[in-house]
Design a protein around this nucleic acid. Structure first.
Lengths: 97, 97
DNA sequence: TTTTAAAAATACTATATTATAATATTATGT
DNA sequence: ACATAATATTATAATATAGTATTTTTAAAA
């Protein structure tokens, strides 16, 4: 039986990843954590845009952030997502710098 | 440099997968090919809906179909996608029947 | 060549996503 | 308490996607 309700959760997960900015964020966090300001510089996007994309990733448990003073450092919080992104991007080294 | 144009193609691929029906179709085609009518029965969706979702998957090279008479048999045409879907769905056996 | 079956394409409404400016929150330093 | 820096939230206009009835195409059978 191919009850499609079974696919709703995994589809939601993929959907959260399926955007160039969000994919770039996750790829950049695969190896090192990073704060929002640095991301926004690297991505050349307004802070609000980056925060919104981070919220979408957070809502799916793909990333999570820890606050250090005024900054929040994000990391990838889902191992399955790490594997998927590595397969998708051919395991290349990606870093925010 | 985290130039996000680099992520546009892979994001498009994920986006095509990121829908319960399309994910279900791809999962169902992982091991065996299938024609549209059988899919539509299994999925309990109108033929036009299934064909539209197949068109989206075809446009990203995720599936392709071969015609046998009036029927078109679809299969997964992208190895990376197979790997991603297996990781995502924990490698479970899925078949249209 | 007309009919029938299967699949694809079209048209169109409803809904969702995207991007970003503006505003609010949270934490720190003065 | 006030100013400032970093991040989050809200509001909203533009654009994209979803679902499906209807129409068209493709191929086979009568």
């Amino acid at each position: 039986m191919n009850d499609s309700s079974k696919y709703e959760e995994p589809a939601r997960l993929l959907k959260a990843l399926a955007h160039p900015t969000r994919l770039c964020i996750v790829a950049g966090l695969l190896n090192d954590s990073c704060n929002v300001n640095k991301m926004k510089e690297c991505l050349n996007l307004p802070q609000s845009t980056v925060s919104q994309q981070l919220a979408i990733l957070r809502n799916q448990g793909i990333v999570d952030g820890v606050r250090h003073g005024t900054e929040v450092f994000y990391k990838v919080a889902n191992e399955k997502v790490k594997d998927i992104v590595k397969v998708l991007l051919d395991d290349e080294e990606i870093v925010f710098k």
